[in-house]
């Protein structure tokens, strides 16, 4: 495949128009899943085809793109998607969250606060938050129409009865502007508070399931909970062993077969920025002279 055989950002203009219309309707009805005629992309379903289509419909040649998977810029699928857009759109790319105008992500929201000039595009595998309670689209569509979300509360309450706490650790459901219950994609619930009131535009693309939805800037997003069991955005009770950050989401790395492990920031750009600023964790070494 050579890039010049394809249109800017791969998709043809008619397809982009269709996706753009869906994005605008998604913005107009925050949290509602807009059906769209997802195209077959040159990468497998389940690997970010929805996010890639949304990104392709948003990109201009002036954009700077960042792609992360699990918070990291160097995971193979992030590398592959970034390369796809370098080849088909010729856009600048970056690993620095603050320099990016569009960030495509799988499973994380960056630690650094986003700004008004940014768009965060989420890759979504199963956009329907009620799907694991009711497999039928025909039923869940009715439940959204009628705001019939009791089933979700029953499920969360059953967790409490069994475990004493809500046993959902990721893809934790949220309610957007008091109306639609929405799947925030499989981000850890640690990231949920960042969904609400963000200055950035948040767009969600599910290719295989043919849905696009959106959270506009400064939109009220609440994680579902109960008065006596309030939502808690938890993380591993450690500091990053490389940069010492106490408030970032951590990956657990197994270091030997004797039970040795260390905890490091999942957001690789956040961790590197801190280390370059002189922060040193328990197992880290000072950065010599920055990069």
């Amino acid at each position: 495949m050579t890039a010049q055989d394809y249109n800017f950002a791969y998709l043809d203009e008619q397809t982009k128009r269709m996706i753009r219309r869906a994005i605008l309707k998604g913005i107009a009805v925050p949290g509602y899943q807009v059906p769209f005629a997802s195209r077959e992309m040159p990468m497998p379903y389940g690997w970010g085809t929805g996010g890639v289509q949304v990104t392709a419909a948003c990109l201009t040649p002036d954009d700077t793109l960042k792609v992360i998977d699990q918070g990291a810029d160097d995971t193979t699928n992030a590398v592959s998607i970034r390369k796809f857009f370098q080849r088909t759109a010729g856009v600048a790319v970056t690993e620095a969250t603050l320099d990016a105008t569009i960030i495509q992500t799988r499973h994380r929201i960056p630690e650094a606060a986003l700004t008004e000039g940014q768009i965060l595009v989420y890759q979504v595998p199963i956009p329907e938050p009620l799907r694991f309670l009711e497999p039928r689209e025909t039923e869940t569509r009715k439940m959204h129409e009628l705001e019939e979300y009791g089933l979700m509360h029953v499920k969360l309450y059953e967790d409490i009865a069994r475990h004493g706490t809500i046993a959902t650790a990721y893809a934790y459901p949220v309610k957007v502007e008091g109306r639609y219950v929405m799947d925030p994609s499989p981000i850890p619930k640690f990231d949920n508070p960042k969904l609400s009131g963000s200055p950035a535009i948040q767009l969600f693309g599910a290719g295989r399931e043919q849905r696009i939805y959106a959270v506009p800037p400064y939109t009220h997003v609440v994680s579902l909970d109960f008065e006596d069991h309030p939502f808690v955005a938890s993380k591993a009770p450690h500091d990053c062993d490389l940069c010492g950050a106490a408030e970032s989401y951590l990956d657990e790395v197994i270091t030997d077969d004797q039970g040795g492990r260390m905890f490091v920031c999942s957001d690789t750009d956040f961790c590197r920025t801190r280390r370059e600023a002189g922060h040193v964790g328990h197992l880290g070494v000072p950065v010599q002279g920055g990069v």
Binding site: R17, R20, I201
Partner: peptide
């Protein structure tokens, strides 16, 4: 391709803000 991309971003910003 390029002009419609810019125009879309403007309309997205308009609708989102």
């Amino acid at each position: 391709a390029v002009q419609s991309a810019h125009a879309f971003r403007a309309s997205l910003e308009a609708m989102a803000r």
